[in-house]
């Protein structure tokens, strides 16, 4: 695997890989987003209790899943960057972080919008909501640490260390918050099983999750391409690329 991976430590190869992968992710995103949203928002049956307002699930759940997925992929990239000293992995961490933060923010905002009609409050100090909010803080920490450094090389390394520290803490935070909540309030309101959903709602939901995953991939790849170009802007291959006007 190492032999297969290590060419991508070179910026030029990583850039080409981004270019190769980008169309696939783009197609997945566009197709799934179109199908998932139209199916979910227009054709899926209304909930017997929540009526049409449940449809925000098709945005809320995918973004919540991807907020955590993005953090774990960011942490994996950070570990790779720290262990094998691969600069491109640092750039990947920085490319994923704002996308993940945006997903977390979407999940929180849609959650608040869903909570107002259903629970009667924009915000409840429920375990899931709280740990999602803390996740947002962790993303902000990584981002602001990166932007605080003048020297982008040490900025990337520092952000990687913080991402790894965060991912070790994340399960502790998650379980402590869950425990804190059950101590004070009893059962959680938001817990639900995917299997408890009717297939007519489950399928558009799954398609939407795929669409959001593709979307995160697309934005990350575009950002990664930019980061690579910016970091390698004095190299001949980048000059050639710019010269060709590509």
């Amino acid at each position: 695997m190492w032999k297969w991976l290590h060419p991508y430590a070179k910026a030029e190869r990583a850039y080409q890989l981004c270019n190769t992968l980008l169309p696939y992710f783009a197609v997945i995103t566009v197709v799934c987003l179109a199908v998932g949203w139209i199916w979910g928002l227009a054709y899926a049956p209304a909930d017997y209790q929540q009526k049409d307002s449940y449809r925000i699930i098709f945005i809320h759940v995918p973004s919540a899943i991807l907020s955590m997925g993005a953090y774990s992929s960011m942490a994996i990239a950070a570990i790779i960057a720290l262990v094998w000293q691969i600069r491109n992995a640092e750039l990947a961490v920085i490319s994923i972080a704002p996308v993940g933060a945006a997903m977390t923010a979407i999940a929180l905002i849609t959650g608040a919008a869903w909570g107002k009609p259903m629970w009667g409050a924009w915000w409840v100090w429920d375990a899931r909501l709280t740990s999602e909010l803390i996740l947002l803080f962790l993303y902000f920490g990584v981002l602001s640490l990166y932007h605080a450094f003048e020297d982008k090389k040490s900025a990337g390394r520092a952000a990687c260390i913080l991402a790894v520290v965060g991912v070790i803490n994340l399960p502790i935070i998650h379980f402590s918050v869950e425990w804190w909540n059950t101590l004070h309030q009893g059962a959680t309101i938001t817990k639900f099983d995917t299997s408890a959903i009717d297939p007519s709602m489950l399928w558009p939901l799954l398609i939407n999750i795929a669409a959001f995953a593709g979307f995160v991939g697309v934005v990350t790849l575009i950002r990664l391409k930019n980061e690579i170009l910016q970091c390698e802007k004095h190299r001949p291959w980048v000059r050639e690329l710019i010269g060709r006007g590509e």
């Binding site: 803080f137 602001s144 640490l145 605080a148 520092a158 935070i173």
Partner: peptide
């Protein structure tokens, strides 16, 4: 340690550390 090299590390450090203090 992450912010010691920065001129104005103080506020940034609390932003990084306080979420980790929650447990």
């Amino acid at each position: 340690a992450l912010t010691v090299g920065l001129q104005k590390g103080g506020i940034l450090m609390s932003l990084l550390v306080l979420p980790l203090y929650i447990p």
